[in-house]
């Protein structure tokens, strides 16, 4: 037979299959707003806590979402929820990012989570969120989060310019496929 044995489409058309989400595996970790809360937690040493906090803080500027204006940032993270990032826009203007609201420990009790900063969004003040915008609940102290949420957060880039591709398609009124 010179043709495919079967075909299936998962996104196109109405015959597409519906994928059901499975329960995500969880891992052990701990979440704190401050180093002091961490040190007070039974079984955690000050050295461990400062180490984890510093590691999270060091990533903050890189992984937090970036905005062109304070207003855009506050629209997502609430009034007084943002600060100036160390980055500069293409025209030299400031780039804004949310304030760090806490941190999540990596490697707790054999858990394979990644130490990282946490944030609180303006429309959901209670829950902590990772830099990749995954909610990890509102519990301070030892907790469990999904493996995905505990993964290493992506570095957030600051896009200086858009629209540098597509000029020929616009000029010719033709997309370039053939």
């Amino acid at each position: 037979m010179k043709r495919s044995g079967k075909i299936a489409l998962v996104m196109m058309g109405t015959s597409a299959l519906t994928l059901t989400a499975c329960e995500e595996p969880k891992i052990d970790t701990a979440i704190f707003e401050t180093v002091e809360q961490c040190v007070a937690e039974q079984g955690l040493t000050a050295e461990q806590c400062y180490g984890e906090f510093d590691a999270a803080k060091a990533q903050h500027a890189e992984v937090s979402p970036k905005y062109n204006s304070r207003a855009d940032c506050e629209a997502d993270f609430g009034a007084e929820g943002c600060e100036v990032s160390p980055y500069r826009g293409s025209t030299g203007g400031s780039v804004f990012m949310p304030l760090m609201a806490g941190f999540m420990m990596g490697q707790m009790m054999g858990g394979r989570g990644y130490t990282q900063p946490l944030y609180r969004s303006g429309d959901d003040r209670k829950a902590f969120r990772t830099a990749d915008n995954r909610s990890v609940g509102d519990k301070v102290g030892r907790t469990q989060v999904s493996e995905r949420a505990a993964a290493r957060p992506a570095k957030k880039l600051y896009t200086q310019r858009r629209g540098g591709f597509g000029a020929r398609a616009r000029a010719t009124g033709f997309g370039g496929g053939g």
């Binding site: 293409s90 880039l157 896009t159 310019r161 858009r162 629209g163 540098g164």
Partner: peptide, 21 residues
């Protein structure tokens, strides 16, 4: 995404509309 929406980051990487690389 659309080719017109590709962005260029401060460190020379191409980005999508969520600023992800």
């Amino acid at each position: 995404m659309f080719i017109e929406d590709i962005g260029l980051s401060d460190d020379g990487r191409f980005t999508d509309t969520d600023d992800d690389p």
